Computed example of a mutant assay.
Amino acid sequence: MRINFTKMHGLGNDFIVLDAREEDLPDLGAETIRALSDRTRGIGCDQFIVLEPDPDASVRMRIYNADGGEVEACGNAARAIGLMLGKPATIATGGGLISTTPAENGIAVDMGEPRFGWEAIPLAYAVDTDAMPVGWDMLEQPSAVNVGNPHAIFFVPDCDAVPLDELGPQIEHDPLFPQRVNVNVATVVDRKTLRLRVWERGVGLTRACGTGACATAVAAMRRGLVDREVSVELPGGPLSIAWHQDNRIIMTGPATQAFRGSFELDDYT
């Protein structure tokens, strides 16, 4: 069976996108998704996206990390799918319904409302999620936010100096986080600017993470470190994040279609 795909990215956070809205596709399974996501033996991606019809939205977006595990949300992928749809749209995800709108500098995504309760992250036990009394080596007192998926955010003097490739997997798999966690290290540049690096659960170090940018911005705003609209500078480029008075987060940034292609399913099963 030959399957068509589109390769897309948002600030270097890249996706294989399969469109199952008008043709039935088999359930690929985690092993096949891992094979396709492999950068040396497959097509290569951070996330694997499958689009399906949905009666209550323009489209349903199913999201799988490169390790084959399904996750609830991906902000950069939402912008990519918004670009593909080419008009204002609603996207159903495992983390809830989001909306996308073409904007002057890319795609604006209404990411919904952040959740701060320990049980909503989720955490293994009750704790103040604004500054949790826990630490791993040089990383201490993180904030925790769920923006469709769980994030721990550490504010540090220089995010580039943190050995995130070492500490990221330790924190991701800590028993404190029963569903694992995305690990964000951020530096406040000024009231309107943050620098950010992200260790993404099931992926590793990534050039950009839309939900991570949203979670980090909201955590910084909650602590009073920045204004309610900021630029979050990631290795792949900047995202604009605004937390409005109605409690909804709006993320705006670019998305790009890299190329189209097809693969023979038997080659990866």
Score class of each variant (00 low, 15 high):
G135F: 03
A57W: 05
A66P: 10
G117R: 04
G95H: 03
E113N: 09
I107C: 09
Q47N: 15
I98F: 07
G117I: 01
A66R: 10
R79A: 08
F48M: 08
D130A: 11
E113V: 08
D54C: 11
F116M: 04
G69C: 12
I121L: 12
G86C: 04
D46L: 11
K87H: 15
V109T: 11
I49A: 13
T40L: 03
G135M: 05
C74V: 02
A120N: 08
L123K: 07
D130P: 01
G42Y: 04
G106Y: 11
V71C: 06
L83C: 03
M138C: 14
T90M: 01
M138L: 05
E119R: 15
M132D: 14
L85Y: 12
G117N: 07
F48Y: 14
V127S: 13
L85P: 08
G75E: 10
R62N: 15
A131L: 09
E72Q: 15
E104T: 08
L139F: 06
V127E: 15
G95W: 00
G69L: 07
V50R: 14
D130F: 05
A120Q: 13
C74Q: 09
R115N: 09
C74Y: 14
V109W: 12
I91S: 11
L139A: 11
E104R: 14
P102E: 13
T101L: 12
C74G: 07
G82E: 14
A92H: 06
D56R: 04
G94H: 11
M138F: 02
E113Y: 02
D54P: 04
P122N: 08
I91G: 05
G135C: 07
G135L: 02
G68M: 10
E113L: 01
P114G: 11
G117V: 03
G94T: 12
G69T: 13
V59H: 10
G44S: 06
I91H: 07
D128H: 07
I107W: 04
R39D: 14
V134N: 10
A78Y: 01
G96C: 03
R60P: 00
D110E: 13
M111F: 02
K87S: 15
I43E: 08
T93Y: 04
A80S: 15
W118T: 00
V127I: 10
N76W: 05
M138D: 14
V71H: 00
M84W: 09
P53C: 15
G95E: 03
N76L: 02
N105P: 00
Y64P: 08
N65Q: 13
T101H: 09
E52S: 15
P133V: 02
A89T: 10
E119V: 09
G94D: 12
P55Y: 02
L97D: 04
R39Y: 09
A80R: 01
A89L: 10
N65A: 11
W118G: 12
M138E: 14
P133N: 14
Y64K: 03
T100M: 06
P55H: 00
M138T: 08
A108N: 06
P114W: 04
K87F: 05
T40D: 10
L123V: 01
P133M: 10
R60T: 03
D110Y: 04
P114C: 06
L51E: 08
G44D: 10
A77V: 06
P55G: 03
T40C: 07
T40F: 09
R62A: 09
